[in-house]
Nucleic acid binder design. Sequence first.
DNA 1: TATTCATTTCTTATGAATTATTATTGACCC
DNA 2: GGGTCAATAATAATTCATAAGAAATGAATA
Lengths: 237, 237
Amino acid sequence: METLSIYPGRGIHGQVVEAIGRRIVSGKEAPGSTLDLDALEITYDVSKTVVREALKVLAAKGLVDARPKRGTFVRSRSQWSLLDPDLLRWQFEEPSGSGLLDDLYEVRIIVEPAGARLAALRRTEEEVESLAAALAAVDEQADAEAIIEADLAFHRQLLEASHNELLIRMEYIIEIGLRARDVLVHTEGHRDDFLPPHQAVLDAVRRADPDGAERAMRQLLEQAAKDEQQIKNRGGK
Amino acid sequence: METLSIYPGRGIHGQVVEAIGRRIVSGKEAPGSTLDLDALEITYDVSKTVVREALKVLAAKGLVDARPKRGTFVRSRSQWSLLDPDLLRWQFEEPSGSGLLDDLYEVRIIVEPAGARLAALRRTEEEVESLAAALAAVDEQADAEAIIEADLAFHRQLLEASHNELLIRMEYIIEIGLRARDVLVHTEGHRDDFLPPHQAVLDAVRRADPDGAERAMRQLLEQAAKDEQQIKNRGGK
DNA sequence: TATTCATTTCTTATGAATTATTATTGACCC
DNA sequence: GGGTCAATAATAATTCATAAGAAATGAATA
């Protein structure tokens, strides 16, 4: 799986971007507060250049705004480019990011069934085959993490078959959130529950049945939500 | 209306970001090709600092990737952060961006009815009132551009009432696309067609009727699509 | 009230030192 | 002789230190 993130921890610059970015996202730097460039320089033990390039990147993500005389200050949350992959990752990895995760589930149940519908209408034969292969690959995985990745790959390929670039990107966003969550739905016990709904989606897509694909995907997600709720309740006791 | 864009043309830096960004988005810089930093320095008549800060920003948007020894090169389109507000604006303002606009309409008819449903479930009394005010404001506008802005404001406020942060951001994206398109649906003749469907959405939201809100929004969008198609056909002849 | 002016802070600039990655080379086993 | 591996050199980005420039604010002044 290729990540969309640009900073694989390589170089000092990326680390500073991520450190400051996470501080802002987590609320440690309050919106409206001004950032002290000299202080950052000392805190992260880097030169002005690095600090200011990092702030430029954060400005590109809408997190900060630099104005002459007024200083560089943190923008309010509503101004952030919340759909930026890095920003999403930082958010979801925050302990307080569960609210956004709920939002994500809602978006998922809106987007994915619609995507399945379009996929059923537009998929090529090759895409049906690779979808089938992706589904088969889930069964071959051993550990939970690999299963999750394979599952995500299936959903990603399905949305790609919708041939709608914006939907595909939204699926990437959904992936980031699902990957960041701690709850692992795919335990051994649930493997039997997993395959049939996915197979149903695949079948509908294969026979180019938009209504069926949409319905099957909705059922799949509702079932998954139910399973997860069960696990959460069990774990919460 | 506040833009999410970070570069209001202020400063040389932003201009270089936009210039190079647009070249890449438009395909003038082929994916995989390496960018010559010295050449850019000369082309835009700025120093190394500006060029490299601009490239850092573009890297944050996933457009380029800089590697020691290999150079700075353009990433493939699939790696771009397509949902970035700036990137979307550049795309939509390209003549060749009509494919993405079609995608956008599809997303809109997926997201907005679902958003209307959630809004009906969660809106506060204050939100109903400001929605009503937003709709009333549309009627007061004189020129086409102002009407469009007022219309967008209505849709934006509706999605905000869904209280789902991700949906709200998607609406921002939709806005960017709609604002960039050249076709102006809201000509004088269509004003009568405009109000009733919007009123229907508002009424459903007011009486907390999710099914009604979803249906009304879907009808609104389908009607709008039909109108636009008509205009396009008329203009095309 | 309007204008000027000094201050503050970001912005741009420059060039050199540093670091990281890759390609090359040569040595060493198979 | 062919292939793998490690040391090396070349290359380009990265980082750094410093300084001059531009812009906005707010106070002092007319």
